[in-house]
């Protein structure tokens, strides 16, 4: 795709959290390499899924892209601007164009603020509306996320999880952003509510032309909502492809293992299906394995895998993979 279709370009992004020792004089004794060099593009108005096991760095990746954590290395180019070079007010100003929806709808709303104050915060911070105009905008946003606009003076604890998540969505939409990072927005919700929220996110994308980075671990949901999917393992992206391509022709052994774990809603197929069981736990991101990080759990690992890190390459048609065996 050409450059002007790319909204967010992530290049070699790394985020290491230092491990320090010492009370007054702190010295660094190591680092948690939560995100260790990821490169991908997010196209305008698409939904890019980011999947992986717990602790593989998905959330850190999302937060580092939004510059909530300062990256250790690499660049994030948002609509032509390098975010990693922005400081202070310039970055704060840029934030109205990129927002986030959080995983836990109970923790992400300030319990001391009314819904009106929560949703209008972006309007106040970026001076987008004030007075009656602001109230009107808040009510409009509530209608947009299908909540009753009468609720503006209530507090978050008066709402259910699904309603709270919609309040979080309304807040994210208040400043008319182009790009929203959805950090597991449905994994804390009841299954019955999940569909509501996902449909809402899809409708909003159509109405407002939003671009999503959708972080999740529910592979069926990702297949439903995303256009392209990236698979992360231990701080690195191992495979990225269009949704159907990835689900029908997974190339990386890790992706194959993940997909084999998704249940198929057909007993006949389910009985014949062969699952790939991964042995052992995810290695520590403080001291990741040499070479290919997956070689310690990979059934097809060869000698080369433990010695050399596989290159991130396009195997055709925008299907990227990092594996020696492909």
């Amino acid at each position: 795709m050409s450059d002007d279709q790319v909204l967010v370009r992530v290049q070699g992004l790394k985020k290491h959290f230092p491990i320090t020792r010492g009370i007054i004089i702190q010295r660094q004794v190591g680092a948690v390499r939560a995100v260790d060099g990821i490169t991908f593009d997010i196209y305008r108005q698409e939904t890019l899924g980011l999947v992986g096991e717990s602790g593989c760095g998905k959330t850190t990746a999302g937060r580092t892209i939004l510059q909530l954590y300062r990256p250790t290395a690499g660049r994030v180019i948002f609509d032509g601007t390098d975010l990693t070079s922005l400081k202070g007010n310039a970055m704060r100003h840029m934030r109205q164009r990129m927002q986030m929806i959080f995983q836990d709808p109970y923790a992400s709303l300030n319990p001391r603020m009314t819904i009106s104050r929560i949703i209008s915060e972006p309007l106040r911070v970026h001076k987008l509306a004030s007075g009656p105009e602001q109230v009107e905008r808040v009510q409009e946003l509530l209608r947009l996320v299908r909540l009753n606009p009468r609720f503006i003076n209530r507090y978050p604890h008066e709402f259910s999880g699904g309603q709270r998540q919609r309040i979080g969505i309304a807040r994210a939409l208040a400043s008319n952003p182009d790009f929203i990072v959805c950090d597991e927005p449905i994994s804390a919700l009841d299954v019955s509510i999940q569909a509501q929220v996902v449909n809402l996110l899809e409708d909003l994308q159509d109405q407002l032309g939003l671009t999503y980075l959708f972080i999740a671990h529910d592979l069926s949901m990702v297949r439903h909502i995303c256009d392209r999917v990236a698979v992360m393992y231990l701080g690195l992206i191992v495979e990225l492809a269009a949704k159907d391509e990835l689900y029908d022709h997974p190339l990386h052994p890790y992706t194959q293992a993940l997909l084999s774990a998704v249940p198929v809603p057909d007993p006949k197929v389910e009985r014949k299906r062969r699952r790939i069981i991964l042995e052992g736990d995810v290695p520590s991101p403080v001291n990741p394995p040499s070479g290919c990080r997956f070689h310690t759990r990979c059934a097809r690992a060869q000698e080369l895998c433990s010695q050399q890190e596989p290159a991130w390459r396009d195997v055709g048609g925008g299907h990227f993979v990092a594996c020696h065996l492909v």
Binding site: R63, R95, Q96, A107, N110, P111, E121, R171
Partner: peptide, 17 residues
């Protein structure tokens, strides 16, 4: 460390606010 503080930071709210 609570998530709503992270949310405020995402919005662009200043440290003082």
């Amino acid at each position: 460390e609570r998530e709503f503080i992270l949310a405020a930071r995402t919005i662009g709210t200043s440290n003082l606010e």
